[in-house]
Design a binder for these strands. Structure first.
Length: 566
RNA sequence: UGACCCAUGGUGUAACGGCAGCACAAGAGAUUUUGGUUCUCUCGGUCCAGGUUCGAAUCCUGGUGGGUCAACCA
């Protein structure tokens, strides 16, 4: 029996507009029902959550329609590209859970073929070598509302063009001295059809072809033809390439090669998040973040380090949908996806981020009990562990209030709370620093009959608190993250504005916390839920002596919200 | 004063001429050894004006609003 995943999930699930196009193509026999997509990044930066949408779309479509997806590096501009980026991109796509199998390609693989295609256009009098400067070309292109002027070099003979183009390739001319242009229509209402540049001279070292070439094709001349060579059926790209589509089709038609179909969708925007590669690069270069994988970055490697799971990112990509309308997704949806995932896969442990000491006056000095605690109440199969309990403990400082408002469910003088997996305790008195009034010790008594699991332990109390035992607690570093920007759509920040005015000064808080001993040997990227305070992931900065935890995302906290409203 | 694209609750996304649905967010309740989770419920939408039709979110026309396009970037 086939056990390949079938296209549908639920029969009722509706199609997005790209799936409708594909299903229509399958129905009508276009491409013999074949579906072949590609993910085509330029290796000039790290992948971010926006790319994740495209990756999930392209690989997801191929998976759904039993097709294939290529990974292709669009490396036609050597001055911006680097192998560092190639490597990180492959790592990130793999981590997201996708496999291009043996179909790893580079646009630079096709440079020779592309040169031949250009020659075909020259022979058809559809391309010519132009000697104008970049400025002249720009000036004669016209504006969106007025036509351009034809280049004086537009009517060169086929032989002259072929000769000059060959000599361009042979390195006879300096950078910027000549370009190859398509001969289309300088009066076209579509600026991209006004004799676009096909090749420029660039004496630059290419990360794959070295110094083999000194002319490089432009995006428009490379992309569609690369799709065609790989026999891509559906070439999915973002909306800004919509106006390029007539040119994409023009090249395919004039050269006379296999015709893929370009389909555009709206790129992802997320509130309080920059998605522009240029801005992300600036954040790194200006030192606002520690690097591309800073856990506050929306890069795949940043999200990974922060503690996001590939599953949660795939769920997110699935949930946001695909359409042609400009969109800004609320960052809370991303947070929802990771909470939902981690809720069932992360073990819950006791961790106190801001400790205050509890002394159980009626608990025997020196006694240590091992108490049993479940690892994840959502998933019994995750088992149990033992927690050491003793006379002196730590609880969260804000889990105690000397003069609590009515709806405060936690510890206060004279009140009872349960210590999770342990006993019910009652606050008897408080010790403060005389000068500052800061609480240094809270004295309590415990009720020995209320140990978790005991027959008498079901007595109701308003609150349950997490705790750690003083002697056995492990000190760890905890890094709390908040949004990097205070501006809702930071991609809108104008060119010359400094980010400083828009950055959140409190986007990173570092503190020392006390955690239960069972996490002492946690591995990098291992996930936990610290009771009440959030989901955490072990950072790569951890050393054998000192664990470092990143807070992936805080838990929803309706108490904090209620407080804020007041 | 151009061409092209887009327009459904606060945010996204379905409905393909026939009951405007789903998710997030927000609010209420139940459960809860954390106020989390889980479950239930509520709130709230077809940009405007005409037209076609028995019937329009859907088709047509005209507005309005938003986006993209004038790199030898991708």
């Amino acid at each position: 029996m086939e056990d390949v995943k079938l296209p549908e999930e639920k029969g009722t699930r509706s199609l997005n507009f790209i799936e409708e196009i594909i299903e229509e193509d399958i129905r009508t026999g276009v491409n013999e029902g074949r579906v072949h997509t590609r993910f085509p990044p330029e290796p000039n930066g790290y992948l971010h959550i926006g790319h994740a949408k495209s990756i999930c779309l392209n690989f997801g479509l191929a998976n759904k329609y039993r097709g294939k997806t290529n990974l292709r590096f669009d490396d036609t501009n050597p001055v911006k590209e680097d192998v560092e980026y190639v490597d990180s991109i492959m790592e990130d796509v793999k981590w997201l859970g996708f496999d291009w199998e043996d179909r790893l390609f580079y646009a630079s693989d096709y440079f020779e073929q592309l040169f031949e295609y250009a020659m075909i256009l020259i022979k058809k009098e559809k391309a010519y070598v132009c000697d104008m400067t970049a400025e002249e070309i720009s000036e004669t292109r016209g504006t969106p509302t007025s036509p351009g002027k034809e280049s004086p070099f537009r009517s060169r003979t086929v032989d002259e063009n072929a000769d000059l183009f060959t000599r361009m390739r042979n390195g006879e001319f300096p950078d910027g001295s000549r370009v190859l242009r398509a001969r289309i229509d300088m009066a076209s209402p579509n600026m991209h059809m006004r004799d676009p540049v096909l090749y420029r001279i660039l004496h630059a070292w290419h990360h794959r072809t070295g110094d083999q070439w000194c002319i490089y094709p432009m995006y428009d001349f490379a992309h569609g033809q690369s799709d065609s060579i790989e026999r891509i059926t559906h070439s999915i790209c973002t909306l800004e390439f919509e106006v390029h589509r007539p040119l994409y089709d023009w090249f395919i038609r004039e050269i006379g090669i296999y015709a893929p179909r370009q389909i555009e969708f709206a790129r992802l925007n997320v509130t309080y998040t920059v998605m522009s590669k240029r801005k992300l690069l600036e954040l790194v270069q200006q030192g606002h973040v520690s690097g591309w994988d800073d856990p506050r970055m929306p890069t795949i490697c940043g999200l990974r380090r922060r503690g996001f799971t590939p599953e949660s990112i795939r769920t997110f990509a699935e949930t946001i949908g695909v359409a042609k309308r400009e969109n800004v997704i609320d960052v809370s949806l991303l947070e929802f996806c990771i909470r939902e995932d981690l809720n069932r896969r992360a073990n819950r442990v006791m961790a106190v981020l801001d400790p205050v000491k509890i002394i159980l006056d009626n608990y025997p000095d020196g006694q240590v009990e091992e108490l049993e605690a479940v690892n994840n109440p959502e998933d019994e199969t995750r088992g149990k562990r033992m927690l050491p309990f003793s006379k002196t403990l730590f609880i969260e400082r804000d889990d105690f209030m000397e003069d609590p408002p009515g709806k405060f469910f936690r510890l206060a003088p004279g009140r009872e709370v349960r210590l999770k997996a342990a006993y019910i305790i009652r606050c008897e008195s408080v010790v403060k620093e005389p000068e500052t009034g800061k609480i240094t010790e809270i004295h309590c008594t415990y009720d020995p009959l209320t140990k978790s699991g005991m027959p008498d332990s079901n007595r109701k109390v308003k609150g349950t608190l997490h705790w750690v035992s003083e002697k056995t607690a492990v000190e760890v570093e905890v890094r709390l993250y908040d949004r990097l920007f205070v501006k809702e759509n930071p991609d809108d920040i104008e060119e010359d504005k400094s980010y400083k005015d828009y950055l959140n000064p409190d986007s990173l808080k570092i503190l020392t916390a006390k955690v239960e001993p069972s996490v002492a040997n946690a591995q990098v990227l291992e996930k936990y839920q610290f009771e009440r305070t959030g989901y955490f992931s072990v950072d790569k900065d951890s050393t054998p002596g000192k664990l470092v935890f990143n807070r992936v995302v805080p838990l929803k906290d309706s108490w904090a919200k209620a407080e804020k409203v007041k």
